[in-house]
Amino acid sequence: MNNASHYDFTKCFFELNGCTIKEKNPKHMTIKLTKEMDEALMNRPFYWHYMKKMNREGEPLSLSFKDISLGDAEEGIFLHAGTPKLQQIYQVALEKGYTTRLYEKVDSPSQNLALHPWLCINVKLTFRGKQSKDLLLSLGLNLINGALIHEAMNKFLDVPLTSSISDYTFPMTPLIRLESGYNRLLQHIEDYLSELDTQWADQSLSQLHYERKLLESFFQSKDVDPEQYEKELEQLHIRYQPRIQLSVANGGLIYLTNETSQKMLTNYH
């Protein structure tokens, strides 16, 4: 991400969170924070605690940001990858963006238009053993007909989405319950993993067996505390025992027209 992208992201973040933005030029902006954003970013817990205790509204602060190319000519926080405030904004965005609900933007449909609900989750699969690697999966499940796609977020990037529903459109009630849909996605991930090459796990187990034999030989030839042996053995298992960890990064409901939903399935395989 370049410096211009950092600036655009920051501007979009504050706009989506209801802050007032005033730009001096395309590379400098001053943001009037909302109370929520002040509490999240400005580290003033005692101030807001006092305001709540006194039953007062309080006054959110303002922040000024500038692209690093402006130098010292303007006041404000430089926006680049190492900016602490930018890292803080990213963290808040991640926390707020763990779940979402978005709608396809439809301009003046000729008749009332139904929107299909898609349950989307982004997961990280972490493979641990002799060697380690991460695998990212983005899955989407149509909660009307059960269609399932991979690389869902890449497909959704081409769709105009908004947090509010367009006029003359309405969200369809899911035929597949959210809990059931989520379990379907988890089952699909299990099936997906069962079809992967297990050579990495076989190599890990082989290495674990080899290291354990060496450890046993060493402790049999030395007068060593058995408790120490158990600790060493535990560390070997932590290092070489093959395992897969699944963590859900984020997810949400995305409502799409039937036409767009059909496009999601194009070239799925």
Score class of each variant (00 low, 15 high):
residue 146 G to Y: 11
residue 73 A to P: 02
residue 241 Q to G: 00
residue 91 Q to F: 00
residue 111 Q to L: 04
residue 143 L to V: 05
residue 233 L to R: 14
residue 78 F to D: 10
residue 203 Q to L: 12
residue 214 L to I: 12
residue 171 P to V: 03
residue 161 L to A: 03
residue 60 P to R: 12
residue 21 I to H: 12
residue 160 P to L: 01
residue 30 T to E: 13
residue 157 L to I: 06
residue 244 I to H: 08
residue 216 E to S: 09
residue 39 E to R: 15
residue 70 L to E: 15
residue 60 P to Q: 10
residue 245 Q to N: 12
residue 220 Q to I: 00
residue 104 E to W: 09
residue 186 L to A: 06
residue 16 L to C: 07
residue 86 L to Q: 02
residue 18 G to H: 12
residue 84 P to R: 10
residue 104 E to A: 06
residue 181 G to Q: 06
residue 194 S to M: 04
residue 237 H to M: 06
residue 182 Y to I: 02
residue 62 S to Q: 14
residue 212 R to H: 05
residue 206 S to P: 01
residue 253 L to V: 05
residue 33 L to T: 04
residue 114 A to I: 00
residue 137 L to E: 07
residue 37 M to A: 02
residue 114 A to M: 02
residue 50 Y to G: 03
residue 78 F to Q: 05
residue 172 M to P: 02
residue 185 L to Q: 02
residue 210 Y to A: 00
residue 149 I to W: 03
residue 214 L to R: 15
residue 78 F to Y: 15
residue 249 A to E: 14
residue 115 L to Y: 02
residue 127 F to Q: 05
residue 53 K to I: 00
residue 2 N to M: 04
residue 79 L to A: 06
residue 108 S to F: 01
residue 94 L to R: 15
residue 62 S to M: 06
residue 86 L to C: 01
residue 122 N to I: 00
residue 219 F to L: 00
residue 68 I to G: 01
residue 210 Y to C: 00
residue 169 T to S: 13
residue 185 L to C: 00
residue 92 V to C: 05
residue 160 P to T: 01
residue 221 S to M: 13
residue 184 R to H: 09
residue 159 V to N: 10
residue 252 G to W: 13
residue 228 Q to H: 10
residue 209 H to D: 10
residue 21 I to Y: 12
residue 1 M to S: 12
residue 258 N to T: 11
residue 44 R to W: 06
residue 208 L to G: 11
residue 150 H to P: 00
residue 261 S to V: 07
residue 216 E to C: 03
residue 125 L to I: 11
residue 23 E to A: 15
residue 264 M to T: 01
residue 162 T to P: 01
residue 34 T to K: 13
residue 183 N to Y: 13
residue 218 F to L: 00
residue 107 D to F: 10
residue 89 I to P: 06
residue 6 H to F: 05
residue 204 S to V: 04
residue 34 T to N: 09
residue 37 M to I: 06
residue 158 D to Q: 15
residue 25 N to G: 01
residue 51 M to T: 06
residue 140 G to K: 11
residue 219 F to A: 03
residue 168 Y to H: 08
residue 189 I to N: 11
residue 206 S to E: 15
residue 22 K to N: 13
residue 208 L to A: 12
residue 226 P to R: 14
residue 256 L to C: 05
residue 242 P to G: 12
residue 97 G to C: 07
residue 56 R to A: 03
residue 115 L to V: 04
residue 50 Y to R: 14
residue 193 L to H: 09
residue 52 K to T: 04
residue 265 L to H: 10
residue 128 R to V: 05
residue 75 E to Q: 09
residue 249 A to G: 04
residue 160 P to R: 08
residue 61 L to I: 08
residue 107 D to T: 07
residue 118 W to H: 13
residue 173 T to G: 02
residue 5 S to V: 03
residue 239 R to K: 15
residue 85 K to C: 04
residue 263 K to H: 05
residue 163 S to A: 05
residue 225 D to F: 11
residue 235 Q to R: 08
residue 115 L to T: 00
residue 54 M to W: 08
residue 246 L to I: 11
residue 196 L to I: 03
residue 193 L to D: 06
residue 250 N to T: 04
residue 34 T to M: 07
residue 257 T to V: 07
residue 158 D to S: 14
residue 118 W to C: 05
residue 268 Y to L: 09
residue 232 E to H: 15
residue 117 P to R: 14
residue 68 I to D: 10
residue 262 Q to R: 12
residue 263 K to R: 10
residue 88 Q to A: 10
